[in-house]
Nucleic acid binder design. Structure first.
Lengths: 189, 189
DNA sequence: TACAATTTTCAGTAATTACTGAAAGTTCGG
DNA sequence: CCGAACTTTCAGTAATTACTGAAAATTGTA
């Protein structure tokens, strides 16, 4: 299977960006190919199209599956495994966020929790623990929030996003509804 | 400068996570050290503490500065450059998001814009372009939104985050406030 | 301006990560 | 349950990335 110039451009870009995104070239290119492919592809087709060895394709597909970025299917009367990328971009977005969090944030949260419990050896350790707590609180807040909103329907999420910074007004309003304690000053540049 | 076990744990963790975060071990460790350091450090202190060569420290600091994750200062009567990490975790959060976007998303946005303008060679290209457009729209929406809200004050942002999924209710309410007309007029930006 | 202190660059090397081909493992139709 | 079709594993190698030490460049000061 020969790529058109357009498809090739897309695929090569994903290959190059892969390393910045935390996957290798193979994984990036395979994902790109699956993303724009109208139908599922088997490993041989992928390998032939991208000029990768069969084993490399196998490993790449495994990694994509571990990211939940591709799923295996079967074609009637064909023993080979076929692969396709999820179609819904909102779903992809959520998956990516979840998997990134799992790999890039959760281990740190866990380390921070441990470290904050340790007894400080001196004043610098005390200070370090304060800093860690700040970091921990922010991450908890941000990821907890994400966890909340990523469960919202794509439509609700889209509305929220389209609202943009106007959310501030709505927020002040919500605040008043909650019993009108702090009037949540609308500041910021 | 000898690290306490607590500090060492923190520093080593950042070194290991570094590669997942897109920086090398040196950069991860230097940042961790600066983050928990009560005062600015010079390059020699950093190199001695972490057992890195002077040149490695120099390169690491340059990279951290390019991420805006550390800034240079001077001590009165000392020619050497001192470095410290920004203290405000909300500011760090925003910086990180901006810099990640610049490196990991913007190039793809640009590629997508180009590719969508190209004339499709066949039906598969047409399909590919549709998929690219979906991807492009989602990224634009998500990053545009981020761009909006990251300008909100930390307090407002914190309120939004604490609101969590309850935002849905507020959102429905906002919708009614706007007069119940079609919800998709560009309120943002 | 000259010089000592400091930082940066860079070529060489070490360490890590990516990729391949061959062999082993698995699966399913006959 | 045999054997062909297919997939995975893995040891070896290639490619990339990280790190070092020496030399060059820069900077502040006497």
């Amino acid at each position: 299977m020969q790529l058109t110039p357009l498809a090739e451009r897309f695929v090569l870009h994903f290959g190059e960006m892969g390393s910045r995104w935390g996957v290798n070239r193979t994984v990036g290119q395979i994902y790109a190919l699956l993303f724009i492919s109208p139908n599922p592809l088997n490993a041989d087709e992928i390998g032939e199209t991208l000029a990768f060895s069969r084993s490399n394709v196998s490993m790449g597909l495994k990694e994509l599956q571990s990211w939940r970025l591709c799923k295996m299917t079967h074609q009637p009367g064909d023993r080979r495994e076929y692969f396709e990328a999820p179609k819904d971009v909102w779903e992809i977005f959520r998956t990516l966020a979840e998997e990134k969090k799992k790999r890039e944030i959760d281990p740190t949260l866990s380390m921070l929790r441990d470290a904050m419990l340790a007894s400080p050896a001196n004043a610098d350790d005390k200070y370090a623990q304060e800093r860690m707590q700040e970091m921990h609180e922010l991450i908890e807040l941000a990821t907890g929030w994400f966890n909340d909103i990523h469960r919202l329907s794509p439509e609700t999420l889209e509305n929220l996003m389209r609202l943009g910074s106007k959310v501030q007004k709505v927020l002040g309003f919500a605040d008043r509804l909650r019993g009108g304690d702090k009037p949540d000053k609308p500041d910021a540049a």
